[in-house]
C-alpha cells in the first residue's frame, strides 16, 4: 500500500490489457448471473409473479437447510483430509533430490490428466462390495461380510479427497518452496525441536499456500456433481444434485435459481473466512 503512486501506472496498463477478459466475463458470467438472480425472484415456475417466495421456501425448510449444511460440511471434511495428506507430500517435495521431485510432481499431477469420470469409476471398483478393499479384508479374514463403503459419506469424502488432491498439493509446494531454508536451520540451531520448527516457522510461513489450497479444494469438492452422485448415490443429496433435480427433472427453474444463489452466497461466506485467515497469515509474514 505504501508504494501507491508508483503502482498507479502499472495498474492503468493492467486494466487496459484486462479489458477483453473483463468484457468476456461481463457477457458470459455476470450477465447470466444477473439473469439467474432475476429468475430466482419469481414465485411461480412460469416466471410471471414477482416475489421472494423461493428464498423463503428454502430458508424455512429444515430439509433444504440440511442439504446445504451437509454440503458445506462435506467440503470441510474433504479439505481437512486433503490438507492432512497433502501437506506431508508438499513438505517431502522440498526435501528430496530433483529426480524424486519429478516423480512426486508426476504422481500429484497424474489425476489431473485423467477425466473425473474415470477417476470416480475407479473408486467404484475400489470401494464396491467385491472391490479391492473388501476383497483384501475378506481374504485376510478380518471381516466376514463385505463392508458398505460405496454410497456412504465416508466413500464420498475419500473419493473427493483423491480427486481434488492436486488442487491442495500444488499451492502448498509453491508456498513451501518460497520459505528460506535458513530460517529452519536458524530455528534448529537456536534450540527448537523439529516439531516446534514445523509449528512455529514452516506452518505460519506456508499459510498463504494452505489458504489457497483450502479455498480451491473446498470450492471444487462441494460442487463436484459427478463424484458426489456416482459415489454417494441417489439417496445422498448434496446441493449440486438438489439443484439439478429441481432444474432438470422438475423444471422448477425459479427455485433452482434461488438454490444456486443461496449456494453461491454460502460458498462466498466460507471463502471470505479463508480470506480473513489469509490476512492473518500476512501478519505472520511481516512479523
Amino acid at each position: 500500500m505504501g508504494a501507491a503512486p508508483a503502482a498507479r501506472d502499472v495498474t492503468s496498463y493492467g486494466t487496459g490489457l484486462a479489458a477483453p477478459l473483463a468484457l468476456f466475463f461481463l457477457a458470459f458470467f455476470v450477465a447470466p448471473l444477473l439473469q439467474l438472480f432475476w429468475l430466482s425472484l419469481h414465485n411461480d415456475t412460469a416466471g410471471l409473479h414477482w416475489g421472494i417466495g423461493q428464498y423463503l421456501q428454502f430458508l424455512t425448510d429444515p430439509f433444504s437447510l440440511s442439504v446445504l449444511g451437509s454440503t458445506l460440511l462435506l467440503g470441510a471434511a474433504v479439505t481437512a483430509v486433503c490438507l492432512l495428506l497433502g501437506f506431508p507430500i508438499a513438505w517431502l517435495y522440498q526435501r528430496v533430490g530433483p529426480r524424486l521431485q519429478t516423480v512426486i510432481i508426476l504422481i500429484v499431477l497424474l489425476p489431473l490428466l485423467t477425466s473425473v469420470v474415470v477417476r470416480t469409476f475407479a473408486w467404484i471398483v475400489i470401494l464396491g462390495r467385491q472391490g479391492i478393499i473388501n476383497a483384501t479384508l475378506q481374504s485376510l479374514g478380518m471381516i466376514d461380510t463385505p463392508l458398505r463403503l460405496l454410497y456412504t459419506q465416508f466413500g464420498v469424502v475419500i473419493a473427493l479427497a483423491q480427486v481434488q488432491m492436486p488442487l491442495m498439493v500444488l499451492p502448498l509446494i509453491t508456498a513451501l518452496g518460497r520459505i528460506d531454508s535458513n530460517l529452519e536451520d536458524a530455528s534448529c540451531s537456536l534450540g527448537a525441536g523439529s516439531w516446534r520448527t514445523l509449528w512455529r516457522i514452516v506452518l505460519p510461513l506456508s499459510l498463504p499456500g494452505i489458504i489457497a489450497g483450502c479455498t480451491l479444494t473446498y470450492a471444487a469438492a462441494i460442487t463436484a456433481f459427478i463424484t458426489q452422485s456416482l459415489i454417494g448415490g441417489g439417496q445422498m443429496l448434496f446441493m449440486p444434485m438438489y439443484l439439478y433435480q429441481q432444474a432438470s427433472a422438475l423444471q422448477n427453474w425459479p427455485f433452482a435459481a434461488a438454490i444456486s444463489i443461496i449456494f453461491l452466497l454460502a460458498v462466498l461466506a466460507v471463502v471470505s473466512v479463508f480470506t480473513a485467515l489469509g490476512r492473518l497469515s500476512r501478519g505472520y509474514g511481516g512479523a
Partner: peptide, 9 residues
Amino acid sequence: AAVAANPGA
C-alpha cells in the same frame, strides 16, 4: 444396497 443416481449408474 444402493440407490443409484440414474439408471446407467
